[in-house]
Structures are given as C-alpha cells and as structure tokens.
Design a protein around this nucleic acid. Sequence first.
DNA 1: CCGGCCATTGACACCCGTGTCAGTGGGACC
DNA 2: GGTCCCACTGACACGGGTGTCAATGGCCGG
Lengths: 194, 194
Amino acid sequence: MAQIDKAERRQQILAAARDVFAKRGYHAAKIDEIVAAAGVARGTFYLYFEDKRGIFEEIVDRAFARLGMAITRVDPAAPVEDQIKDNIRRIVGVLLEDKATTKILLSDAVGLDPGFDRKLLVFYEEVGKLLRESLTDGQALGIVAPGDAQILAVLAMGAMKEILYQVTMRDLALGEEEIVEAIYGFLSRGFLRV
Amino acid sequence: MAQIDKAERRQQILAAARDVFAKRGYHAAKIDEIVAAAGVARGTFYLYFEDKRGIFEEIVDRAFARLGMAITRVDPAAPVEDQIKDNIRRIVGVLLEDKATTKILLSDAVGLDPGFDRKLLVFYEEVGKLLRESLTDGQALGIVAPGDAQILAVLAMGAMKEILYQVTMRDLALGEEEIVEAIYGFLSRGFLRV
DNA sequence: CCGGCCATTGACACCCGTGTCAGTGGGACC
DNA sequence: GGTCCCACTGACACGGGTGTCAATGGCCGG
C-alpha cells in the first residue's frame, strides 16, 4: 500500500463513507463496507475517526457548513428578486452538486436519534431565523405579505427541502434553473389565481 | 395478569410501541422497553407481532391510512377555497391529534432503510398525484398559476410537512386554525407583494 | 545496508439485542 | 374439583457488528 498523505487518506475514507451511507442508510452501512470501498483495513478507519457516529457527524457538519456559506442575508433596501433567486440558486447548486451528501442530510440524518434531531433542528432554526428577519424587514416595507414571519419561514424552507429531497431520492429529471424558477415563483406568489 | 381481549392486548402493545418509537427513534427503541411500557413480557410481544420492524410498519401503515382518509379530491367546478382549506384542516387535524405518531412518520420513518424509503415515496407520490391532477384541472380553468404541476405539488406538500414537523419536534405553540390559515395563504398566494 | 518509526493490517473478543421455546398458571367447561 | 387449553412468561442461545491491539512491513535517515 503506497504511503499517502494523511489528509488525503482521511478524505478518501470520508468519501467512501459518504457513498456507503447514502446507498444503505446509516444503520445498514457497516464499517466493513466503508473500509472496503475506501480500499483500507478496518483498523485504519479507527485511526482516523472516533467511530461510525463520528464520521457521520463530520459528513453532516461539513454539509451544513457548505450550505451555511451559500446563504446570504437579503437587503430589503435593494431590489429583492435577484437576491432571493441568487440565494435559492446557490442552495440548490450546493445540494445538487453532491447528491449523495444531500440524501444523507435530508434522509439518513433525519430521526437518527434525539441527539442528531436536535442538531438538525438547530441548523434549521438558524437558517429560519435569518429568513424570518428578512421577511420581517420586508413586511415593514410592505413588500412581504403580513402574517407570522416564523411560520412563513418554516413553510418556505419546507418547500425547498421537499423538492430537493424528491429530486435526490427519485431521479426527477429537472434542470437546476427550472427548479430555481419554480421555487421562486411558488414562494413569492403561491399558485392560486382566483 | 388479568385476561384481556386479544385485540385489546394488541392495541396496548401497539400504543406502547408508538410511544417508545416516538421517544427514542426506531433503532434506539428496544423491545425490552416496549414490553415494559406495555406491562407485558418479552415473549408476549412476539405472539402478537412478527418482529420490531413488523410493528413499526403497522404503525406507519395505519397512520398513512388515516391520512389518506383525510384527503379528498378538489372539484375545480365548485368554489375551491373552502375545499382546499377543509383538506388542509383535516390533514393538520389528523397529524396534531396524535403527535407521537406524527413524529414517527415525519422523522423516525425517514431514512430507515431503502425499503422504507420506497414506502414513504410511494405514499407521497400518491398524494402528489391527486394534488397534481387538481392543480392541472385548475390550470385549465385559469385559477391555478401556470407551471409544472408536479413541482407545485411537491412544493406544497413540503411546506405542509415542514410546518407539521416543526410543530411536532419543537413545541411551537400554534393553534390549529392558525396553522391552517397560514398554510392556505402561503400555498395560494406566496408571500411577495412587490 | 541497517535500525527505528509509524502507518497499516485483520483476526479476535466482547457486547448487546433479538427471537425462541419449554415451562407456568389461571380460567372455563365438564 | 378436576382437567384441559391457551395466553403468557422470561432465561437463554445465537448472531453479527463493533472497536482493539499485537504483529507487520515499508520508508527514511544515518
């Protein structure tokens, strides 16, 4: 076995774990399958990661970090349409770029155990807070419909999560820009025209 | 131990299992804890249910059945607002009435394993089909915004799932009617008023 | 060429939870 | 009161997956 840079080996195991978790789900993913996929022995895994839970958590944390980077605050003083669309575009981009990780985030990490549930809720709460504040600003300017900004934020996040969940789990053949436009249109105007 | 009607005993174990699954999540829920909660011995459990997976599946199937009953087709010839609101109201009602089961549906059953994922997707696909058809009807009549009805259906379901997920997992103090109105307003008109 | 270091290996022991099954007891019917 | 039946019991064996650790070997500096 060729000597490999430590960081690179870590990366290699991380990528294998991501693929196996995405394919099997957290519990059905066995360490033996991960190390086989990484082309490494069982013991090596434990040199680089605490345990199964640890590596899974790292995958999720990195994904959240990437997602967090993609989201920026909307300035309600400037025209909002492009700002909103850009946010949606970046989020969709990050999630479709690595579908294995997205499946892990939206499916495997859900309902793992109470501890992990809390981690997810905290992340969504942070994103929700940002969104809520933007909505509240918008309401003050009259460009966002009145109503509980907290609920609106949750509904908006849910819509996005679901379309990306469906695109990831079934292979809905949708282009990125098509998804972005659909989300934007839905969030901004809903669908009734009575 | 008093003799009990068989159906009642089954029910008793089912209820205990529901509570334990909701509290711990699927994998952390041990048969021993379920039977303890039911006040029954380990062996008895296996007289009534195939195995852990079996009882979990039954809980989910029953929940889906109840949910399915709550949803009715929207007749686009008649005024739609009340029909839509009634559907939302019934769905929200069913899910908030038994939060333990709702938590199981929206959290524990997600990403359990590929088999269960398929079951969930099939259910959402059925609901989505109904919704999609209603939306297509509405588009023909010009009362629903143009656009891919499939995507709109997914976005609408996602918004509902998320608000109910949040209400169930954190205890957002929201009244049922408040939730119904918020969902309806969001689905029908979105939130931008530019 | 040699010695030491360190990443890597994989067989193994331990753990924990599941599902089983031979035994128990209480109610019902005779 | 006796006997049969069946729901119920819970100790146990089995399986399989995890994390460990003593052994290995290749690279590098001397």
